[in-house]
């Protein structure tokens, strides 16, 4: 399995750029570069999944059921949620067989 840092052009990662100023800095066409993400979805959510790591057995169901692909493994193979893509839908919390994920209001984080 290739790790993101080993891939020269990893699929789908954030490459932010300044909007507005001039058309010249906008990419020529989106299809020139697959997986080109300009804007984060950070502001979309009002809930945030808080994962209780102690009892997690890395069953990977939260990774599987995330429609955003926002959950990935950390170095210890525990799930981490990516700030940029989570929309706070709560599917991971619903699917966790051990109920280790709590949806907390974004403002209380």
């Amino acid at each position: 399995m290739k790790k993101p840092e080993e891939v020269s052009n990893p699929p789908c990662h954030l490459r932010p750029f300044k909007r507005s100023t001039s058309l010249a800095i906008w990419p020529n066409s989106p299809q020139a570069d697959s997986g080109h993400l300009a804007f984060s979805n950070k502001d979309w959510r009002n809930m945030w999944p808080q994962i209780e790591w102690q009892a997690c057995n890395s069953c990977s169901l939260c990774l599987l059921f995330c429609p955003e692909g926002a959950i990935s493994w950390n170095a210890n193979r525990l799930p981490i949620v990516q700030e940029d893509w989570c929309k706070g839908c709560g599917l991971c919390a619903r699917e966790c067989p051990k109920n280790l994920i709590a949806m907390i209001p974004q403002t209380h984080r």
Binding site: C12, G35, L37, P67, E68
Partner: peptide, 19 residues
């Protein structure tokens, strides 16, 4: 695989189609 090919889309939260 761990690779993701559909990330950062603007679908509504909990979208079944995007999953």
């Amino acid at each position: 695989p761990d690779d993701e090919y559909f990330v950062g889309h603007k679908g509504c939260g909990g979208c079944g189609g995007s999953l």
